[in-house]
Design a binder for these strands. Structure first.
Lengths: 172, 172
DNA sequence: AGCTTACCTTCCACTCTTGACATGTCCAGA
DNA sequence: TCTGGACATGTCAAGAGTGGAAGGTAAGCT
């Protein structure tokens, strides 16, 4: 049910259309909670039916701009304070590690090397992104920066782990 | 399609029944790729239909023991070497961070504090687990240990990040 | 005026995942 | 002997997520 609340959260600051939200998901939220167009439009309809958002303006080309309602904001707060985040994540990258034994050591190293390279690249990109942003002191900046820092630390951790793992796979 | 390959991977070492595999998923694989009973039994049937595994023995209580076939092993190897791991993960924990601005600073800190505590606990548990295992030099040990090390580093990173984030949320 | 591009939404078919329910068998201990 | 707990599989409904097709409007450019 997180998509639901992600949409509510994005509507806190300003009204937006499905199309606007779709772009937000494709860019800034893509690394945290990817969502497709069909999912977003569908969920918006459900949220409007539930009264958590309303169509506040109809624009050209059938554009519908949604605005958060008071019950919607209350629901967002309830979600944040009263429900526990779901922590069960799936990691395809890590799952494969369990089965590297069926490959040759060289193939296993190739895999880990690829992961290290990927993580290193991501880390560099995030650093560049961080440097390019002029961080303010407002809420969006504070929490946006905290989220970005998570990405930086995570990618650094993955990079270092993969490099360390490489040293553990001996030739046999 | 990872569940499919996870099952193939588990059948490499020794034949197993759906029930056996279910227990493996609930224990050792739970943190990497959780799966429910209905999923596992369903997927095993599909894998058998596809000829990637076969029923090698029928036991008491309708027990069906599955064994990996050569095409099954080939498919596992193909998956490991020729397909890229899917890296799009969803993080409920991180998603919420984006919206902490709608709460009071104190509530936001409570949230981060909870995450720090949770990560610290997980880290301690993994360390204890690591210490309790007698690691050998075989494949299972090497790659199992690499996977466990990932968990250790990940939980440490989350713990430290949450603690750092706490210092970023000022009273206003 | 005509063409292209961006905008904007809806619908559909499919797979994956969850949770619950249903059904029954074997075995060990009181 | 009986009874509870572990063993063992199957099915079903509902929700979440993916990918793509379809259909149409407005705006900008030449």
């Amino acid at each position: 049910m997180s998509l639901r609340h992600a949409l509510l959260g994005l509507l806190v600051d300003h009204p937006a259309s499905g199309y606007d939200l779709l772009k937000t998901f494709d860019t800034s939220l893509a690394n945290v909670w990817p969502a497709t167009q069909s999912q977003i439009y569908g969920e918006l309809t459900k949220l409007a039916d539930a009264g958590l958002i309303v169509v506040s303006e109809q624009g050209p080309r059938g554009r519908k701009e949604y605005t958060l309602t008071d019950p919607g904001l209350a629901e967002l707060r309830r979600w944040l304070t009263e429900t526990e985040p779901q922590r069960t994540t799936r990691s395809d990258v890590l799952l494969r590690v369990f089965f590297l034994g069926v490959l040759t050591p060289q193939q296993a190293r190739d895999y880990l090397d690829g992961q290290a390279a990927h993580a290193a690249e991501l880390h560099a990109n995030l650093k560049a992104l961080d440097d390019s942003i002029d961080w303010d002191d407002d809420d969006l900046s504070v929490y946006g920066r905290i989220a970005l820092e998570y990405g930086r630390r995570f990618s650094a951790m993955q990079r270092d782990w993969a490099r360390w793992a490489l040293t553990q796979v001996k030739n046999k």
